[in-house]
Every structure is written in structure tokens, then in C-alpha cells.
């Protein structure tokens, strides 16, 4: 799988949102291009279905565009985008249009250590590993690590305390480390 780098929160979002709110489609297009990889990654990891992920991306940005006029800027754009993305995925799953496909951790084929420099193989392993995570843990990790939400922001989105998000993220990282072979040993 070809990959982009992990995206970070974009400092220029606020300006672009402000312009887009006035009808500047170029600014909105810039937002779309900046955030498409993030939304796509989230949806892909949610459904493990590239087609579903494409649909989600489109639906998310249409929703965002429709609602830009009412986005008051009190929260960051990335926080709002995560909320729209997350809820859209849930909508699809609840409606039965898409179904998240969990993977049994025991069935994950780990990358041969000799191939760990093979980016394609490594990437595939990482994606598989992500899908083995408990959904709550994976969602928390996604919110924090690719949408750039703080624990508090993510907690508000999930309706749980910030400390719970922190714990979920930690559990996710610990599980990833185990699957990726970076932490095979036990705790001291």
C-alpha cells in the first residue's frame, strides 16, 4: 500500500474555513485536499473497505460544506471534521450500509522481520494491526494521532473523560507495539 505521511493539524485551517464560509470554493478545495487523506484513512480503518472509505470521504465533505455557514469556530476544524467523519461512519454501520470488519489478532500475519524494510509489507501489517484493536481504542488513537485532537477534545466527542481517552490511546499503542513486534517482551 502506498502511503502518505501522517498528517498533523493544519494551522491554516481557520483561515481557510473563514474564506470558505464566504463562498470561496478555492479555499474549501484546499481544505478538502488537506484533509482527504485523514478522513479516508479513518474510514478505511473503520470499514476495511476502500470503496466505503471513498463514499465516506465524499459524504463527509458534502456535510461539512453544507454546514460551514453554521460552524462557529469555537472548536477547531479538525475536531469538527473528526466528529462528522466519526458520525458518518457510525451512520453507515448502523444502517447496515457498511459493516466494520474486525480482525482476530490471532489471525494477523506479521511481517517477516527480514522484510521490515519493505514498506509495502510493513504498511500492510500496520493496517492489519490497527484493525485488530478494540474499536474504542482504535477510534481514540485515530482521533488523537491523525486528527490531532487533545485527550479532552476526544473525550468530549466520545462522551468520556479525558483520562479514559488517554488510557484507550495507551492501550492501542501497547497492542500495536505487541503486534508489530516492537515490544515482544513482558513488562519489567
Amino acid at each position: 500500500m502506498d502511503n502518505t505521511t501522517v498528517s498533523a493539524p493544519v494551522s491554516g485551517d481557520a483561515d481557510l474555513v473563514q474564506k470558505a464560509r464566504t463562498g470561496d470554493l478555492v479555499a474549501f478545495e484546499r481544505l478538502v485536499r488537506l484533509h482527504t487523506p485523514t478522513v479516508y484513512a479513518h474510514a478505511l480503518r473503520f470499514f476495511d473497505d476502500p470503496t466505503a472509505a471513498e463514499d465516506i470521504v465524499q459524504e463527509v465533505f458534502i456535510k461539512v460544506y453544507r454546514a460551514l455557514g453554521d460552524f462557529d469556530g469555537r472548536s477547531r476544524f479538525s475536531t469538527w471534521l473528526f466528529r462528522v467523519t466519526h458520525n458518518t461512519c457510525l451512520d453507515h454501520a448502523r444502517a447496515g450500509r457498511r459493516r466494520p470488519i474486525p480482525i482476530d489478532p490471532l489471525t494477523v500475519e506479521l511481517t517477516d522481520p527480514d522484510r521490515m524494510d519493505d514498506r509495502t509489507a510493513l504498511s500492510a501489517t500496520v493496517e492489519k494491526a490497527l484493525r485488530t484493536l478494540a474499536p474504542d481504542d482504535r477510534e481514540a488513537l485515530q482521533a488523537v494521532s491523525i486528527f490531532g485532537l487533545t485527550y479532552a477534545e476526544a473525550g468530549a466527542e466520545f462522551g468520556v473523560p479525558a483520562g479514559t481517552v488517554k488510557s484507550r490511546v495507551f492501550r492501542a499503542r501497547r497492542a500495536l507495539a505487541s503486534i508489530l513486534g516492537g515490544s515482544a517482551g513482558g513488562l519489567q
Partner: peptide, 15 residues
Amino acid sequence: VGLPRPPAGLADRVM
């Protein structure tokens, strides 16, 4: 490893 790359043209389709 980064994020999985979206298909080419996806952002264009969104626009």
C-alpha cells in the same frame, strides 16, 4: 508508515 493513500482523484471527485 503513514496513512493509506487515497485513490488518485478522490479530492477532485469530492469537489
